[in-house]
């Protein structure tokens, strides 16, 4: 099972899991804050809404489209200065 780091905390997740599910199962909510400061989470689950973006190994990706891999370093978007 892949082991990754979610905001500095190690987690083991089943293969085939998305990074989004890993974040959700770890209770990391909200995923971001909107321009006016509202808490936001994933909406569409299939790559359209861009609400679930997260920083994986330094790159901003849609976490629902990103499978977990061994050693990934995952962070939520910066609070209040993302879009």
């Amino acid at each position: 099972m892949p082991e990754l780091t979610l905001e500095g905390v190690r987690a083991t997740v089943p293969p085939g899991t998305t990074v989004l599910a890993a974040l959700q199962n770890a209770g990391l909510s909200p995923l971001r804050h909107s321009l006016s400061g509202g808490a936001r989470g994933a909406l569409c689950g299939m790559g359209s809404c861009y609400e679930c973006r997260a920083v994986v190994d330094g790159l901003t990706v849609r976490s629902c489209l990103t499978p977990v891999r061994e050693g990934q370093d995952v962070w939520r978007l910066e609070v209040n200065c993302d879009g």
Partner: peptide
Amino acid sequence: TERFLPFDGWTLPGVVGAGGLQAMSKGGL
């Protein structure tokens, strides 16, 4: 894609697409 319509509170984490929640569940949620 799913059609979403705005209503009060729809931006709260926990409000998700119907097909969206199914997809998240298949993704391991």
